[in-house]
Design a protein around this nucleic acid. Structure first.
Lengths: 161, 161
DNA sequence: CTACGACCTAAAGCTCACTTGAGGTCAAGT
DNA sequence: ACTTGACCTCAAGTGAGCTTTAGGTCGTAG
């Protein structure tokens, strides 16, 4: 351990990694992509202000909520330039997640409930099931979502017998 | 439209695609990977039995629930060989999704509720928030999950001031 | 018979969010 | 001064789940 303590205002990339739990390589990536800012020492090493900790917290939580980095970039772009973001700024950004979370939850609940009745009848061809509004199912269910079906594919709707 | 009607027992790949909403290329991929079975015509074209429609329905719903193709492969492997799966077979498989769905829903609800209080206090550094059991958060939240933090990273837990 | 859309294969490409590798430099403790 | 771990860059790789491309064949309506 060569690096330690440094209550010197600026953080090394390793310190940021340790304190946020984000890998060093990911931090370099975030820096390169402009998600966080850094200054360089005379020797070319990155130094981060403590402000980045909050930005990284935001990024990670936003990812958990299901945002892509592009969306997060857009979101961060609405922060004021030239001044340190306030609590109110962060609150505004994260408030936008609420509907998305609600929608995801609603979707999963619908899937669960409909799956229950499908399990009940054992069909899985889902005759009477509403697993068949794939559009909104697909809409915001993240990566694993894709879509159940394209444009009202007939047979899955009515069973294949 | 050269192909039409064919109530002839076996389906072409295009028919399966149309009826399931799954792209032809994806069907070829599923075939190559053994997720569905096919026979070939004298000319080398694939022909599918109607049974594949149910398998594909299963695959797509399983994906929505959050299973990977590998998990789906394992799941399908438990179906009886040599006989057409019954409703009971499919029911058994999909019953396994229930806990996963419940867990996903619980996770999102927790995130939502804790986010609400975080929005309330505007902190986002989440001092008192339980967004900090990243282990189970990460556990089953699909692709977008990763994890919020590795091993109790200090600063995000206690705010960075 | 001919056209032409549906089908075929194999290999490469794509997206996302990073990680890994190779080859080299910086800086702090002793 | 030396050692050694932390740091640097740039390019390529990863993995999931397909899609796209290129070049060619099949099969049915007309």
């Amino acid at each position: 351990m060569t690096n330690e303590h440094s209550s010197t205002e600026l953080l090394t990339i390793g310190e940021v990694a340790e304190r946020t739990g984000v890998a060093v390589s990911a931090l370099r990536f975030y820096d390169a992509e402009g998600f966080v800012a850094s200054v360089r020492t005379a020797g070319g090493q990155r130094r981060f202000s403590r402000e980045v900790l909050r930005r990284i917290a935001f990024i990670r939580v936003a990812q958990t909520v299901g945002l892509t980095l592009e969306e997060i970039r857009d979101s961060l772009a609405t922060l004021p330039e030239g001044r340190t973001p306030t609590k109110a700024d962060w609150t505004r950004l994260s408030r936008a997640w609420r509907p998305r979370l609600d929608a995801q939850i609603a979707l999963l609940e619908r899937l669960r409930d409909e799956l229950t009745s499908c399990i009940g009848c054992g069909c899985l061809s889902l005759q009477a099931c509403a697993l068949y509004n794939p559009d909104d199912l697909a809409a915001s269910l993240g990566e694993g979502a894709r879509y159940l079906m394209g444009d009202k594919p007939a047979d899955l709707l009515r069973g294949e017998h």
